[in-house]
Design a protein around this nucleic acid. Structure first.
Length: 276
DNA sequence: AGTTGGACCTGACTGC
DNA sequence: TGCAGTCAGGTCCAAC
């Protein structure tokens, strides 16, 4: 599932191929993928006159800045991948969104589970968009640090492994890197967020940046039932210590990794011995 | 306001 | 072999 490192990997790879390009045609095979505006035909008619000025990222989302003073937001959901290929390359039924450029290459969004989405919004300020107006600081920004995290966690009863995935608190972290950051901090993800000591919070903030940065360096993570691949179809090189490793030995102490369900919901992976 | 839980979606897997 | 059931999770929304 694309989190910050996977989104950043895809952003870097497609940026080289689409910045400065003129859009000639947009195709939306599944209208549900277009979250805004509601009118598919108007969207397609409008965007085919646009030019891509920049490709940035906010949390797990990729944002294209257009010369029309608009922003094209692409969310990958949990199964989304993007690639740029010549327009005559065949595609399957999971490709829901395509942008064809004047050079006859196509940007394609493939998303089997359809949790992803495309948004076209007026304006050039990413933080002002409805999609991001309540987002916390990007996990790799200077704004996300021990002081910020300590203030944000104070009094919170939600489990630390859950609250780290709250994009309103900090943007870019999902299951893989929440589990990973807790493991590196030696903190059980099942602890109430407000129970962490100042020292633990400081280590946690550093661990978040550390594992995200490492993961970007190896083009993200391919693990569990997810089939994430970058725009060249290659798996990510990051190897999580606990995520999707239930029953396998902890890399630090060999204790079998446990998985718990938080209230019937999603799973948290951790080492019951060295994470307190 | 903080928190919980269900809905969305479909490929991969399990069990009969 | 085939079919039903379960699981995975990012995000949104309704309901305590």
């Amino acid at each position: 599932m694309p989190e910050l490192p996977e989104a950043e990997t895809i952003r870097r790879q497609i940026a080289k191929k689409i910045i400065g390009k003129d859009i000639r045609e947009a195709s939306i095979t599944d209208p549900a993928i277009l979250r805004y505006p509601p009118d598919v035909r108007r969207f397609c008619r409008h965007i085919k006159k646009c030019h891509i000025l920049a490709v940035t990222r906010r949390g797990k989302a990729i944002v294209c800045r257009l010369d029309s003073e608009q922003l094209l937001v692409i969310r990958l959901g949990m199964s989304g991948t993007m690639k740029v290929v010549p327009a005559d390359v065949p595609f399957d039924r999971h490709v829901h969104f395509r942008l064809r450029f004047a050079d006859n290459n196509e940007l394609r969004l493939r998303d089997p589970r359809k949790f992803g989405g495309v948004y076209l919004r007026d304006g050039s300020n990413v933080d002002a968009l409805p999609e991001f107006s309540h987002y916390g600081p990007d996990a790799l920004s200077d704004e996300f640090n021990a002081d910020y995290l300590a203030a944000a966690l104070r009094g919170r009863k939600v489990l630390i492994g859950v609250v780290l995935m709250d994009q309103h608190l900090v943007a870019g972290i999902g299951k893989i890197y929440s589990d990973e950051a807790c493991w590196r901090t030696k903190v059980a993800p099942t602890r109430p967020a407000g129970s962490l000591s100042r020292a633990e919070i400081k280590r946690l903030a550093a661990a978040v940046k550390e594992c995200l940065t490492e993961a970007i360096g190896v083009r993200g993570t391919t693990a569990g039932d997810n089939s994430y691949v970058d725009t060249y179809g290659l798996a990510g090189g990051f190897r999580p210590a606990t995520y999707a490793r239930t029953g396998q030995p902890c890399p630090r102490c060999d204790t079998p990794i446990q998985r718990t369900r938080m209230g019937g919901g999603r799973g948290l992976h951790y080492c019951p011995k060295c994470q307190k």
